[in-house]
């Protein structure tokens, strides 16, 4: 969260927004947050957001799922109670593996998908009964809101510049907790 004053700058076009983001960052102003109604292609790069590592998480979760499946079936089918099923005695996990592959795969996907989504929800702080934090309801409709850090800048010239980048509305937000 930005400390002190921030400007909420509204745009109503994604191309204008992209151009504006580049101009604002070129002028060394700090964009602390952006709210958009849909994923604007390339916005994360333009804002200089670091890559998300969710895919790597998912890969690791998948490996965990694979291990869980293997250990579980090895314990149940080989160690705890080996049986001779369909003429295929269960004394070796490897030799019976074709029959275990489907569930190894399913659990890999199960873990990779669900744990990744849970990670995503937690990281982005979204869950039931969470209060929405978009400052203007139109940012889920057709407006794009940039939160620009106004601390240490002249508000008037900053807002003039922002209007020049194509902003449609600007408002000054005073964060009380930092005042």
């Amino acid at each position: 969260m930005a400390s002190g004053n921030v400007l909420h700058v509204l745009y109503n076009d994604d191309d204008v927004l992209m151009k504006a983001v580049k101009e604002i960052r070129a002028k060394k102003y700090r964009i602390t947050e952006a709210y958009t109604p849909f994923p604007v292609h390339g916005l994360d790069k333009a804002m200089g957001l670091p890559h998300t590592r969710l895919a790597i998480c998912s890969f690791i979760y998948g490996l965990i799922g694979l291990s869980v499946a293997t250990l579980m079936m090895n314990f149940i089918m080989i160690e705890d109670w080996p049986r001779n099923i369909g003429g295929k005695p269960s004394f070796s996990y490897l030799q019976n593996m074709p029959a275990f592959v489907p569930i190894m795969f399913e659990l890999t996907v199960f873990f990779a998908a669900h744990l990744m989504v849970i990670t995503f929800y937690l990281r982005s702080k979204i869950w039931p009964f969470k209060k929405a934090e978009n400052p203007d309801p139109r940012t889920t409709d057709d407006h794009f809101l940039l939160e620009v850090d106004a601390a240490g800048h002249d508000i008037d010239s900053l807002s003039k510049f922002l209007y020049e980048t194509g902003a449609s509305e600007i408002s000054l937000i005073h964060n009380e907790e930092h005042a």
Binding site: E33, A34, Y35, T36, P37, F38, P39, V40, L43, D44, M47, L49, T52, L54, A55, S58, G62, V109, A112, A113, M116, V117, F120, Y121, R123, S124, K125, I126, W127, P128, F129, K130, K131, A132, E133, N134, T139, T140
Partner: peptide
């Protein structure tokens, strides 16, 4: 779930969609 549409959320959202699609 209190979706706010932050740029970072969208970035993760797109990544998650892609990985979920791959899975």
């Amino acid at each position: 779930f209190g979706w706010s549409g932050r740029a970072k959320d969208w970035q993760r959202f797109e990544e998650v969609s892609l990985v979920l699609a791959g899975l």
